[in-house]
Design a binder for these strands. Structure first.
Lengths: 113, 113
DNA sequence: TTTTAATACATAAGAAAATTATGTATATTT
DNA sequence: AAATATACATAATTTTCTTATGTATTAAAA
């Protein structure tokens, strides 16, 4: 059970909010966390995630820190202050969007129950 | 107030559900209906809408009917039986997706209030 | 009355963001 | 020993949108 097309445009929101909840995370950890939280419904692809993380860094929303676990490298990502405020804004925007969609799709406020 | 990136992937869901609610609609009417229902937050662009409608037709989810209002043509779109079931599936998928996103984004069930 | 805005369709070029495929390498489990 | 999991990355392609452009009729405003 995937939510394919719908995921588009939500990747950065997901990543930013996970980092807001977890101080620091590395790429692979993010894919696993999303898999667990979504109960296997959302499986992030590496081809989408890594370029997205690089863009967040280029935009100054996250900083990175490399840690070696034996010989294997891990790249941890942490929110900058700008990243923190952007995370909040993005999540709020998502909430607003869902409310608007409920109006258009004729869904009741408690449509999921 | 737009929800830009988030809209991606939801256009067909919107169109299908509007047609489920309204028997038949034409393109321009759809843009206006979405504008009103969303309180100007979602403004469909013609460059996205028309190709999308054409694809729905090519996929057998809608049929069309041309009506002349004076000299100006209107192309009405109506759901096929397959379109009707796809509309339901798409809306359900959107609802499921939102529930999953609530888990990931750490949002309470009544996060909008 | 003439010009602007609204109605109504359509397509093409370009950008953005994903998927799919591929690549490298280490560590763990079977 | 082989398969799976961990962990990064990039390139080619596809999907889906935005922006721009085009045509034409009708209504409203200046």
């Amino acid at each position: 059970m995937y939510s394919k097309e719908l995921l588009k445009g939500t990747l950065k929101t997901i990543v930013l909010q996970l980092l807001a909840d977890n101080d620091r995370m590395y790429g692979y950890e993010i894919t696993q966390k999303v898999k667990i939280l979504s109960q296997d419904k959302i499986l992030l692809t590496e081809g989408a995630l890594y370029p997205s993380l690089h863009k967040l860094e280029a935009d100054g929303l996250v900083t990175t820190e490399k840690v070696y676990i034996g010989k294997r490298v891990r790249k941890y990502y942490m929110l900058t202050p700008m990243g923190t405020s952007t995370a909040k804004a993005r999540v709020q925007e998502f909430s607003d969007f869902v409310e608007t969609m409920k109006l258009i799709l004729n869904l009741k406020p408690g449509f999921s129950s």
